[in-house]
């Protein structure tokens, strides 16, 4: 590990913003206090990682997973984080799935294009009846014309 020690700090600007959001408006947080909280956060990450890693090792797994992190929170007596963490994870997973679906959709569209070229005449009849085609369909039409030419 050749990283510089400051690489193990979290960015001060973000930490400051999170602190400000947690406290009532107008509270003054001393520079020393901000630095201390930031260091405490790094120690928290290490402590949580080490706890979670113990759970993974007990289960003879090499990769830390979500269950290990949640178990670590319980062990560290931060049970209060577990519910918000579960909720956040669900949203995060949905976001990931959303991204996947978008790329799936793109892939399907591409396949459809290929199908269109193979099955040109039938598609053409269908498209004649459609007004105001979507952008992607327009692309398909253009491509078909190229093929015909």
């Amino acid at each position: 590990m050749a990283e510089r020690p400051e690489d193990l700090n979290l960015p001060n600007a973000v930490i400051t913003r999170i602190i400000k959001e947690a406290l009532p408006d107008g509270v003054n947080v001393s520079k020393e206090a901000r630095r201390a909280i930031s260091q405490a956060a790094s120690v928290f990450v290490l402590y949580a990682t080490s706890c979670a890693n113990n759970f993974a090792m007990k289960a003879k797994r090499k990769t830390l997973n979500a269950g290990d992190v949640l178990a670590a929170m319980e062990e560290m007596e931060f049970e209060r984080f577990m519910e918000p963490l579960r909720e956040a994870l669900e949203v995060f997973k949905k976001g990931q799935k959303g991204k996947k679906e978008v790329s799936e959709q793109r892939r399907r569209d591409k396949e459809k294009k290929v199908d269109c070229e193979n099955d040109k005449s039938r598609e053409e009849e269908e498209e004649d009846g459609e007004e105001g085609p979507m952008e992607e369909e327009q692309e398909v039409v253009e491509e078909e014309e190229e093929v015909e030419n």
Binding site: F44, T63, L64, D68, V69, P84, L85, A88
Partner: peptide, 23 residues
Amino acid sequence: SSINQDALFLTTKATELFVQHLA
């Protein structure tokens, strides 16, 4: 050795909760 995406996300989120809680 390795950390999956969900575990990484949860640890990051937990750190934010921790900062708020400590403050």
